[in-house]
Structures are given as structure tokens and as C-alpha cells.
């Protein structure tokens, strides 16, 4: 079942235009949302949540029109914008006591057990938590009101590799029973290699790919060749061509491969795909 569907979101800003942003997320999967800084990731997430007003477009959550049924849609969503930095001097227990009153489905037992699991002390204040712990606290809040869709804006940025890995494992565990889905934005491609099922890639406000991770990775190859091989006919098929003294390295669509001969071909990973595409 489709848990989130975004259709043709448009939003005009002086420095950025979201153009026909569309993608779908099925229940039980993790979708990574990648793009450079300023590509429109946060704006897209805020438009989905109606924190900014899209000029046009439609968002549905579990089949419900978000604009028409904002309240019930928001009950299903756990939103974490960046690291939790609100009310840094308040205790976890106080923030939870405030939050629970907004959700009829709040489960206090679940919250207590998540705190225990994540090693969170309810008497600590937000500022006493490390960045990784803050994300976990936000997740504990979201999971305790039984959110089906977790939307996380750069939850792993600023975390050390161990905490990041820990968090990514947790993401996978959370979707195990196929009830929840996670949409998380990041610029760290290795996060996605580890845990994303689907990838939506945004560049300058436009979605240039929204597909399974394997399909995305398989649809490109890294090619290397000498200066002599870099002909006028080859050049238009290369993506983000980098030249050096010995030759060139570029990305190429797998479909275009049969048309060329004699190049060194290697599988592409997300990072190289992103670097070459952004170079265009």
C-alpha cells in the first residue's frame, strides 16, 4: 500500500524553484532523499507537511488528501526536522508530557520502553544529549504515537560513523514488520548504500530519479579512457566528464554502453553517480 504520494509539487522561491516534484513511497520501505545542499530537500519536506505553501501539487498519506485531512494525516507522521534543538533546557520527560497530549494513540508504555532501549534518561535535558541521542529521542516520540510514516530531515548529519551506523540499523529494524516507512534526506551517500530501498534524487528543485537503489546504481557505469578516445561523438554521452593528463573519467548510462568500444567500464556507486551528475 502506498503510504506517501507526492504529485507535482511546485513552489517558487527567488533562489529555488521546486518543479513538479513527484514520488511515491510504499509501506514497509526506506526511501533516501538525496541532493546537494540547497537542492530543495528541506523545502520539499516542508511542502509535504504544509509548513510552506506549495503553489500547486497534491500530497496523500495512506490515501488521504493531506490538504483536506491535515489533522489525521499528521497523526500518522513523525516529523524530525534536523537535529532536535528545540527547548534545549527542558527535560525529556517534560517535553514528552507536553507532546503526548496531542496524540490520542499515545502509548506511554511504549515510550518508556523506547527510552530504555535507546538509553535515554528522562531527567536529562535536551542540551545534555549528544546529536545521535537527540535523533533517538525524536524517534522515541514519533514511535510512541504510533507514527506510520517517519519523515526525517538529515537525521545523520553531524553524527560520528558509529552513531550513524547504529541509527541506520535502527531504521531497518523499524520497518521490519512492514507497517512503517521512512523517508529521510541526506547528503551522505554511504547511508543510503547501507539501508535505503528506494532513492529519490533531487537536483535544483527537480526530481531526476525516483527508483529502487539497485535500479539507480545499475543504470549507470563509470567509464575511463584515454585522451584519444575522447572524441566529439563520445562527449555528448558522457555525464560529468573529468579530464586529467592521462585521459578522462565519466559517468555513462548503461543503455549507452553498447555504442562505445574500448573504454574501461566499472560499476558506479551512489557517490560517483551524484558527483558526476552534479558536475553537469
Amino acid at each position: 500500500m502506498e503510504i506517501l504520494s507526492v504529485q507535482n509539487l511546485n513552489k517558487h522561491y527567488p533562489k529555488l524553484d521546486l518543479k513538479n516534484v513527484s514520488f511515491n513511497l510504499e509501506q514497509g520501505y526506506i526511501m533516501g532523499f538525496i541532493g546537494r545542499n540547497g537542492a530543495g530537500k528541506t523545502t520539499t519536506i516542508k511542502s509535504i507537511m504544509r509548513l510552506v505553501h506549495p503553489d500547486s501539487g497534491m500530497v496523500t498519506v495512506l490515501g488521504k488528501d493531506f490538504a483536506a485531512e491535515e489533522f489525521s494525516c499528521k497523526q500518522q507522521i513523525g516529523l524530525v526536522l534536523g537535529q532536535v534543538s528545540y527547548y534545549p533546557t527542558k527535560k525529556i520527560s517534560v517535553i514528552a508530557d507536553v507532546t503526548r497530549r496531542f496524540y490520542p494513540e499515545w502509548d506511554t508504555n511504549a515510550f518508556v520502553s523506547y527510552l530504555k532501549r535507546f538509553d535515554l534518561d528522562p531527567d536529562k535535558t535536551v542540551k545534555e544529549l549528544s546529536d545521535g541521542m537527540r535523533v533517538k529521542f525524536a524517534l522515541a516520540l514519533a514511535l510512541s504515537h504510533n507514527a506510520r510514516l517517519l519523515i526525517l530531515d538529515e537525521p545523520t548529519s553531524g553524527l560520528d560513523p558509529v552513531s550513524r551506523d547504529d541509527l541506520l540499523e535502527l531504521f531497518q529494524e523499524l520497518i521490519e514488520n512492514s507497517e512503517r516507512s521512512i523517508l529521510f534526506s541526506t547528503q551522505i551517500t554511504s547511508d543510503l548504500e547501507k539501508c535505503a530501498d528506494f532513492i529519490t534524487y533531487i537536483k535544483k528543485g527537480e526530481i531526476i530519479a525516483s527508483t529502487s537503489k539497485d535500479d539507480l546504481v545499475n543504470s549507470y557505469k563509470i567509464v575511463k579512457g584515454t585522451r584519444v578516445q575522447l572524441t566529439e561523438t563520445l562527449l555528448p554521452r558522457l555525464i560529468g566528464c573529468k579530464k586529467n593528463d592521462f585521459g578522462f573519467t565519466a559517468l555513462m548510462r548503461t543503455d549507452d554502453l553498447p555504442t562505445v568500444d574500448g573504454l574501461e567500464v566499472a560499476p558506479a556507486d551512489l557517490e560517483s553517480i551524484m558527483i558526476h551528475i552534479e558536475k553537469e
Partner: peptide
């Protein structure tokens, strides 16, 4: 205290 962002995440 970024109250707006706390509140914005609530239903």
C-alpha cells in the same frame, strides 16, 4: 527555543 519547529511537528 525554536518553539515554532516543535509546534510545527505536532498535529
Amino acid at each position: 527555543n525554536k518553539d515554532i519547529f516543535f509546534t510545527a511537528s505536532l498535529p
